[in-house]
């Protein structure tokens, strides 16, 4: 359970990114499936080139932002529909990620001298149980990111991002270039996603080219599970709800894996589980309305 809470806290970073595009900007951004492994790939590349984890993380964040910028340009400059823009970037990134990594999977091994934030943590605070060190660190990180994002969404640009997703006509009438706002929003979102990728690479100690498959839906699942748990009205509560959503979603998958094998549930069924979860929650309001009409 502690492990899935750790995972939840970690993937909450990605969920916050998905929240920016899907909920604030109203831009269904599928870049995530490419920018998540990109963050991991960039981190692995940096580690193999002998850089410390902080550098790897910074470069991964920049890479994610650039990926988002690319999707944004496809949409705003080339007028390609939102979904297609994201898919195009995602597919381009598959090759680019392979280029960065040089092979389909890389391990980040201490024997090869690769340091991660988690090994540094362990070596600095010797004598504390590693599991709780990780937990505390991830909790601190996500709280820090939450506060930063809350503040960002209350700045002039942040407000413009939220308004753009709500009413583009208004935004234009108020002298804001909605294209520019979308570029900023999608970049920030994918920077977070790539950061999540870099952290996850360190967390599990290896990078695989296919680790991004289904990440958008996992992120979206976290966001909407959060919406079911809490119905926040202010950004402060909504970001908490996204983080809680990520944790609960990870716990649900852990439960499905641990106890599901009695009914023949296999790890590769997880994507089906996630897909069905999202479908059920999204369809729920429709069924509820239908039921009400019958009564």
């Amino acid at each position: 359970m502690v492990y899935s809470v750790q995972e939840g806290l970690l993937f909450a970073i990605l969920a916050l990114g998905v929240f920016i595009t899907f909920r604030c900007l109203n831009f269904p951004d599928l870049t995530v499936d490419g920018s998540f492994p990109m963050g991991a790939a960039v981190f692995a590349f940096m580690a193999h080139s002998g850089f410390g984890p902080v550098y790897g993380i910074i470069v991964a964040i920049i890479g994610g932002a650039l990926a988002g910028l690319f999707t944004g340009f496809l949409h705003t400059f080339s007028k390609i529909p939102a979904l297609l823009s994201g898919i195009l970037t995602m597919i381009c990134l598959y090759s680019i990620n392979l280029r960065i990594m040089g092979r389909p999977n890389i391990s980040l091994s201490e024997f090869l001298g690769h340091r991660t934030v988690f090994t540094i943590l362990r070596d600095t605070f010797t004598g504390y149980p590693e599991m709780y060190l990780r937990l505390t660190f991830l909790l601190g990180l996500i709280i820090f990111l939450k506060v930063m994002l809350d503040m960002f969404l209350h700045t002039e640009i942040g407000l413009a991002i939220r308004a753009t997703g709500d009413n583009e006509t208004l935004v234009e009438a108020q002298g804001i270039n909605p294209d520019r706002i979308k570029l900023i929003g999608i970049s920030v979102s994918n920077a977070l996603v790539a950061l999540c990728g870099a952290m996850f690479a360190q967390f599990q100690g290896f990078v695989d080219i296919n680790m991004g498959i289904g990440m958008v839906i996992a992120g979206l699942a976290s966001v909407i599970v959060g919406e079911v748990l809490l119905r926040g009205r202010t950004i402060f509560v909504i970001t908490i709800q996204v983080i809680l959503g990520a944790i609960v979603y990870r716990m649900a998958t852990a439960i499905a894996l641990n106890w599901g094998y009695h009914i023949g549930f296999k790890p590769f069924d997880l994507k089906l589980f996630t897909g069905l979860l999202v479908i059920i929650i999204l369809s729920f309001p429709v069924f509820k309305a239908k039921l009400r009409r019958v009564r």
Partner: peptide, 20 residues
């Protein structure tokens, strides 16, 4: 107040200041 804040910066550059 957020709506007003958006209108308040009309014609001026928008940055990372708190909007309100």
């Amino acid at each position: 107040e957020e709506n007003f804040a958006i209108a308040f910066r009309k014609g001026k550059p928008r940055g990372l200041r708190l909007a309100i």
